[in-house]
């Protein structure tokens, strides 16, 4: 018989290296005389989309389009160190470094533009729609590219070089007090499963996933990360197990270590919760790793809801489920 059930899983996750370990990201920025920008960071984009995020950030700060920003990343000859693509940290940590470096490059540009536009202070200048404008007086404006190339002829360069360090502290081993991670990400998912009581097979039909990411700088990418996390969570919950024998992995290939195919992944509905993190770029914080965590608990709870058995070791294989359904063994 096939039985359906629903389960809930929640997770909180400290992003970044944590525990006072120096979690530093750096960025170099240059505003060019055609109004384009280059951003150099050590952050490697392994598909999570960090380079796109940095282009969006620089574009937002300078009133240009993201495709006018060239992001050069992860070249140890030319880019400053931004740490690893790990710990769900680049949007927050390296994103902050990019904002700081752009702000530094922009400060010189605003000061130069204030003189060019006969404005008393750089505070009165804004960058919008590829133009440098006096705030509140859109008629007093010049194209960004024109200002930067004129500045170049005057011997001025608009460069930024900055770092950002996450503000964690070591935990006091006596009191347990401290700030081991900063910031934290939160997520909650509901899974609906169908359990076949004859075979023990579990199908995950649907997962609804709500994740607090502070601010979705790129909602399409955010939804993609959530879907990817859920698929990995399905694998973790139902299929994947590294089998060791005397220190050797017994299943080191994709024919023995199965991961979900498109036929194993559920319908996914992502909900982006934007509760701003005040230290993050535009309020953003990380999302990558937390996306897979609630899936596992949600599936295991849904199995319980469907057939009333509690699986306490992963993966929840058909063998384990059948054994649990058969009741306590009489040995």
């Amino acid at each position: 018989m096939k039985k359906r059930g629903r389960g809930l899983g929640c997770a909180w996750y400290g992003t970044g290296y944590g525990n006072g370990f120096p979690d530093v990201s750096s960025a170099f920025v240059e505003i060019h005389d055609d109004g384009s920008v280059s951003v150099l960071t050590g952050a490697i984009d392994v598909g999570q989309g960090s380079s796109t995020i940095f282009a969006q950030i620089a574009a937002e700060e300078l009133g240009i389009d993201a495709d006018e920003v060239t992001v050069i990343s992860g070249d140890t000859d030319t880019t400053p160190d931004s740490g690893t693509s790990a710990a769900t940290r680049h949007t927050y940590n390296t994103g902050n470094a990019v904002i700081k470096a752009v702000t530094q490059a922009k400060a010189g540009l605003l000061a130069y533009a204030a003189r060019a536009l006969h404005c008393t202070s750089a505070d009165g200048i804004e960058l919008k729609d590829h133009r440098v404008r006096v705030k509140g007086e859109p008629a007093r404006s010049l194209p960004l590219a024109e200002v930067v190339s004129q500045a170049r002829l005057d011997g001025e360069r608009f460069l930024g070089s900055e770092s950002y360090t996450a503000r964690t502290t070591r935990v006091n081993p006596e009191t347990g007090q401290g700030s081991p991670y900063w910031p934290y990400a939160f997520g909650c998912q509901v899974a609906e499963v169908e359990v076949d009581t004859e075979t023990g097979n579990v199908r995950v039909l649907k997962v609804v996933a709500a994740h607090d990411l502070g601010k979705a700088i790129n909602p399409l990418q955010a939804e993609g990360q959530i879907a990817g996390g859920i698929a990995q969570g399905v694998g973790f919950a139902l299929l994947e197990e590294v089998q060791l024998s005397e220190g050797q992995i017994k299943n080191p290939s994709l024919s023995q270590y199965l991961i979900p195919t498109v036929l194993d992944t559920p319908e996914i509905h992502a909900i982006l919760v934007e509760e701003p993190e005040e230290t993050g770029p535009y309020g953003a914080k990380g999302l990558g790793e937390p996306a897979m965590l609630p899936t596992i608990a949600a599936i295991v709870n849904a199995i319980d809801d469907a057939v009333g058995v509690r699986i306490t070791s992963l993966p929840a294989t058909p063998e384990k489920i059948l054994a649990a359904l058969a009741g306590p063994s009489k040995t």
Binding site: G224, G228, A231, L263, I268
Partner: peptide
């Protein structure tokens, strides 16, 4: 579509956007 794509594994996307 799902059956036609089921011989291609993806570790990143969860297949959602691919479909």
């Amino acid at each position: 579509i799902a059956v036609a794509m089921s011989g291609n594994l993806c570790r990143c996307t969860g297949y959602d956007r691919i479909l």
